[in-house]
């Protein structure tokens, strides 16, 4: 009797939600493909895609970490410092003493979980705590690895250089990570609770769930993805550097937003974040391909990101809802 008025709108919304970040990625990718047809040529695609996308993987990992933080309405401003620190731990400690290195990484995880608890108990905004942590991570990194150098454990190097048949390794990893992220956020109890906390902590608590547990787990996972990002970056560069992952914090936030995530309300998309991260990564390639004058590169980079966001958003047009 009552026609479901929303169904058409809702179907469209779901359709555009995955489409928008994909379009943003295409905005960046298409000009590159146009200028470098090797990327789709049957003989060369494997080597060129592997090279073009390899350094996108650590950004994808960092962005998934950031997505987790943003799913509960928080943000990790220490992401780049954490990722850099992990390369130092891998290069300076893990290489010589795997046991101590593992203990170090577990310690980092524990600190991240503590941050989650702290944010809950003290009701402090994560931005403050994580900005504070960013100095601590960098200080630690400089202490254990005062200058760039070190060597990565061979297993890590090898893990980043796998060459599966037919499909370039970075694409395999990106798809895998998108699936894992999607499963985590949308198929598990944890993911539902995390997004619930992001929208309405009170009702999650009233349903008898422990919000502090959710926050601890979320931040534990933020730390875990940060660590994985550091391991991946270390494996790719085969070196440790206390400032290696500069810009990763803002890149990861931008990737989540480009992927359809919001700063509040528990709205995130793992698949979108992966698309967004790859788009952010490819901007560097686009600059090279377009041969922008060095004086303009920073500005053009910003412009491309805004363009990708705008063109993506152009397809979204959620309707003209405004309130007083």
């Amino acid at each position: 009797m009552v026609r479901p008025l929303d169904s058409r709108k809702e179907g469209l919304a779901r359709y555009t939600e995955t489409l928008v970040p994909a379009i943003s990625l295409l905005v960046v990718l298409l000009p590159i493909v146009y200028k470098q047809p090797n990327l789709i040529s049957p003989d060369r695609y494997y080597a060129t895609l592997t090279m073009t996308l390899a350094f996108g993987i650590p950004i994808v990992l960092a962005s998934l970490g950031q997505m987790l933080a943003m799913s509960i309405g928080e943000i990790d401003f220490a992401m780049e410092n954490l990722v850099s620190l992990v390369t130092c731990v891998m290069g300076a400690v893990m290489f010589k003493d795997p046991l101590l290195g593992t203990a170090f990484l577990i310690g980092i995880l524990a600190v991240y979980m503590l941050i989650g608890a702290f944010i809950h108990l003290k009701k402090l905004p994560s931005i403050i705590i994580t900005i504070g942590m960013s100095f601590i991570w960098t200080g630690l990194a400089i202490t254990i690895q005062p200058t760039p150098g070190g060597s990565m454990p061979a297993a890590v190097n090898a893990a980043m250089r796998l060459r599966p048949p037919w499909i370039p390794y970075p694409i395999v990893l990106a798809v895998l990570l998108a699936l894992i992220g999607h499963f985590l956020m949308f198929k598990t109890n944890f993911g539902i609770l995390a997004r619930g906390v992001g929208d309405n902590v009170k009702s999650i608590q009233q349903a008898g769930h422990s919000a502090i547990r959710v926050r601890i787990m979320v931040f534990g996972l933020v730390g875990l993805f940060g660590i994985l990002s550091g391991v991946a970056l270390g494996g790719l560069t085969t070196s440790a550097d206390p400032l290696l992952a500069k810009n990763y914090t803002l890149l990861s936030v931008a990737a989540v937003v480009l992927g359809g995530g919001t700063f509040a309300g528990g709205k995130v998309s793992a698949v979108g974040a992966v698309f967004g991260a790859l788009a952010m990564h490819l901007v560097v390639h686009l600059l090279v391909v377009l041969k922008i004058s060095t004086d303009w590169q920073a500005g053009v980079k910003g412009f491309i990101i805004l363009l990708a966001l705008y063109i993506g958003g152009f397809f979204k047009r959620a309707g003209k809802i405004r309130y007083i």
């Binding site: 650590p58 760039p148 970056l233 560069t237 500069k246 990564h281």
Partner: peptide, 9 residues
Amino acid sequence: SSAAEQAAQ
């Protein structure tokens, strides 16, 4: 001065 970005570049 991002090393990760320069590697990609």
